[in-house]
Simulated assay, not measured.
Amino acid sequence: MLNPTVLSSCLLLACAVSLSSSAALVDNGMPILWAQTVGQVTDLPEQNGTLTPDPWSFLSRMSLYRLMIAATDPFMGSMGTNATDSPLWGLPLQLGWMLTSGRLADPTGATTCGLQTGDTMCISTQSWWGCVSYFASVLSFLSATQQGFMGQGVQVQMQVPAGVKDYCTTYADCAARYPDAMSKWDAFFQGLKASSESPLTDKEKKDSILGLYWAAQMASTYASAACSARQSHYSSTEVSFANNWLNTAEYVSAAHFQSNVQNTVMFLVLLPSRVLRENDSAPNIADLSQDENRTLTIFSWLKNINSLFGGTLVRLWRKAMCSTETREKGREMLEQLLLNPSFPTHTFFSIITGMSRSC
């Protein structure tokens, strides 16, 4: 929910645009096409006693998220009273944005995967966005399975298109190739189970779970550096946005953002609704909304400032996010930065510097 400060300062027109845009990301309060995903582990394809999901199908990848959310919900009581308060909801919503914005389609033009003229539910193995999403979806699902959330003794091997060899497909394979990411997902799922017996308050549990979640999510993001060669299929403008998007995740994760449905949609509707072309120049991209143009500008500003100071801005931000109180302030500041057009960006650095000194 928007806090009162942000709500009062957010331009009425900008808020209206964002709220109306959310229709492209949710359907009856759920991620798009949620009703077409599978709701039981036994509904996944199986061969010789091993589950064999196809992560190159949008509906199948979304199904992995649905199964994970359902399996972990009993441990998410500290997140809030709504059924959509789990931070895992951010993952399928983000995948939905990638689909609707055309970012899961084949960027090489060699196939019709993901295009309106082909299989619209196809996720291209050549899509950089689809590759980055693979590390968030497949690694987390394999870890959840390994930790017993899908049932005891369940084995999983992901399907992979013929000729494609650079994606891990089993828990052992992914753990060997990306040990840090898998160990952090394991820690997240183990932490969920431990939280049910923890003497901490719900507020403390919530912050702890979100910390474990974002540590895992960012470890998957760092592991997805393996996808970088696929950026060559895109315009320099799209590549710049992609890298700025990765940089912004540093701020979101350190502040322990609660990526439930309501909060995630609020920010996803600000992202560009199509793949960027070479001649696109924010904030003057005519067929993108004012919100989308402004977000591209803010993302670029955050990345450029951080680069200018040799990574100091991200380091200061991480240092400043040292307590539940400062993380709460950090989340409010990010809301102001992205949702309030009148927020003075030149004060951002000085505010963070002051906050970091108190840690």
Rank of each mutant, 00 (worst) to 15 (best):
T347C: 03
R327N: 05
P341V: 11
L334I: 15
R277V: 15
E325M: 07
N340H: 00
A286P: 05
S300H: 08
K329E: 14
N293F: 08
S323R: 05
P272W: 06
R315E: 14
L270R: 05
M321S: 04
L276Y: 01
P344E: 15
L302A: 11
E292I: 07
A320Y: 08
D287Y: 02
E292K: 03
Q336L: 11
P344M: 13
M333I: 01
G330W: 00
L288N: 04
T324Q: 07
L313Y: 04
V314T: 13
L313H: 03
T312W: 03
L270C: 09
R274C: 05
D291A: 11
I351Y: 10
G330S: 04
E278K: 06
I285H: 12
F267N: 01
F267C: 04
R277P: 00
I305H: 03
A282S: 12
L339V: 10
T297M: 08
N304G: 02
S289C: 00
E328H: 03
Q336C: 04
P341Y: 11
S300Y: 00
Q290K: 10
S307V: 04
L308F: 11
M355E: 12
L276R: 01
F343S: 06
L276M: 11
S358T: 14
K329F: 04
N340T: 11
N279K: 14
H346K: 12
